[in-house]
Design a protein around this nucleic acid. Structure first.
Lengths: 338, 338
DNA sequence: CTGAAAGCGCTAACAG
DNA sequence: CTGTTAGCGCTTTCAG
């Protein structure tokens, strides 16, 4: 129990307006058209008292909260920041609030957040996690109503999913590189256990093969600049280095490009570069980066749509694959000795 | 009322474990050390039933929610994304959740979100808004418990505030530019009604004046790339253009730099550039951008701290000014004709 | 069309 | 140390 409230409640409004709580409640929830006079009395009572409804009480009573959960690895990454913005906007348009949680790709936190959201406030959950997944997580996810997996698939989870066409992204990159005359290509991937990583690689490899080129170097690691730096180091120590590299994420690219600059490797003269993910002002980079662009706003919108459908009884396992596109800028050029 | 719940509640757990609700509740809230046996029975009842506490009920009952509100203009901007990440982390460390709302600097939304958070879920509110403020907003803000204004001051609001030392940031920029030999400097600011904009300008102007330089061009506008583009256009059409420009935000800089590139204006050879705000990989830009860096993580941490203090009865009007620093890179060089 | 009253699921006095 | 019980503030059935 709490101490006597000084804050006005529905009861106070009702008393002041000379009606019952039920009437005020109905009025506020717009299930009701009141005589102008009554409506006005209620309005002014509300204003006078400075009444603000208590959302917890409302949610408790209604059994739902008009809020959706969004769980992402981190928000300090342009891609996820943009994604969060897109989800927020889409949710807002449907009158839904969003509860955001960053997990840092930490399995405990993921489980914790999913649990927290599971039966609570949330009418649906948009989830993205980019690392190896424990059975517990998968189980928790499968117990979650209104779940939509986004951006990254998780094997074993049965839910609606909105993903990108990673294979085609890899293909586009491979094709472009091969067209420019590259024959030896490197792939710097994210975590190797992720389907997205493998798909991007497969697309790259297949497109290359079809054009008579090949992927001569592969390396995997976390979505972090440090991984890019290591990749650069590895690349530079190769006896017969590739003439182009396809980097699987913006974060990795940051470290890679930085290391390349420090080593005074000219891009694209010495090494061509193409990155998966076009978040951030890549056109202002040195050099402007050729990239595979993912439609982020669309991801957010589709996800919210599917979530609504899923939570309204239609637990479809729809999987949508959003197309990606190649954005040509200046980090790819024919290799020096073609 | 809702339909009969199939979901297990505290009551079910209590029955299954053969204890009372109170005991389970206390156990869960850790105010209590139970005989190992009892504790174990409760644990397994919880597991077996798949019990998940209802946060709304808890919040309603407790009168608080261990959640803080964060309202920012947009999350699709590296600075605010980083800020949100910092706040999330600081809040998480204190066991607090965060409810995020992006307002797009829309006055109605701001008012709406503040109201929504005001008496509700939220134990405190971290608020940032970067535009002209209506009296209604100021009033609503002053009625908010646990409010902390961050990043941008709002005249008339009495609350704790965590801001950056904008004046000093401007000063640092002016000093650096003057040292490099610039005598005619341009200021491309954000909205002119903001204290932060005026402070940055004042710092720049004073530092310039003291070094015998002057601000020969000023322009103000929204925090958007389009404003930067317009500024570039204006700058380029000047009869006697300045040799350096201080841009008041990263968003504006994006448009400005882009336009400069398109017009083939060499930076820093033809025009030196320094930007307030070091979010995003500015070191990879063409050229690497000299910037005034703001300690974002510290902002988040201090804000959460002050919020906690403010909501725990100490409604201090503490105002903390976080120091900023100059990060020299390659976008500033002596002017051609010194 | 409006009011009384029974919960929503949980916490916290208060008693035992 | 544990159980009983009265709410937290709102929604909604059910009478009137």
């Amino acid at each position: 129990m709490t101490q006597r409230r000084l804050i006005p409640g529905l009861k106070d409004v009702a008393r002041t307006a000379g009606v019952s709580m039920a009437t005020v409640s109905r009025y506020l929830n717009a299930n009701l058209v009141l005589p102008a006079d009554t409506a006005h009395r209620i309005d002014s009572a509300i204003r006078q008292l400075g009444y603000v409804p208590n959302l917890h009480a409302r949610s408790l009573s209604r059994g739902r909260s008009d809020t959706i959960g969004l769980v992402i690895p981190t928000i300090a990454n342009p891609f996820f920041a943009l994604l969060a913005a897109a989800v927020e906007e889409a949710a807002e348009a449907k009158g839904l609030g969003v509860l955001l949680n960053a997990t840092s790709n930490n399995a405990n936190r993921e489980l914790q957040y999913v649990t927290r959201m599971r039966r609570n406030q949330v009418s649906g959950l948009l989830f993205v996690s980019a690392h190896y997944h424990t059975p517990e997580l998968v189980e928790a996810l499968n117990d979650t109503r209104g779940l939509v997996l986004i951006d990254e698939d998780i094997p074993g989870v049965r839910s609606a999913k909105v993903l990108y066409d990673n294979y085609h992204g890899g293909w586009l990159a491979g094709q472009h590189l091969a067209e420019q005359g590259h024959r030896r290509i490197a792939f710097i991937g994210g975590p190797s256990e992720l389907a997205s990583t493998r798909d991007r690689f497969a697309g790259l490899r297949d497109a290359a093969a079809q054009a008579g080129a090949e992927v001569t170097f592969e390396m995997y690691g976390p979505y972090a600049p440090s991984h890019g730096e290591e990749a650069a180091r590895a690349l530079l120590s190769l006896g017969r280095p590739p003439s182009a590299v396809f980097v699987s994420s913006g974060e990795i690219m940051i470290g890679l490009l930085d290391a390349l600059h420090r080593a005074a490797i000219a891009v694209p003269e010495r090494l061509s570069l193409i990155v998966f993910d076009d978040a951030g002002p890549l056109h202002l980079f040195d050099p402007p980066l050729t990239a595979i662009r993912q439609p982020i706003a669309e991801l957010g919108a589709r996800a919210v749509e599917l979530m609504l459908a899923a939570s309204q009884g239609d637990p479809s396992e729809t999987e949508v694959r959003l197309p990606v596109e190649l954005v040509k800028r200046a980090s790819v050029a024919p290799p020096i000795s073609v």
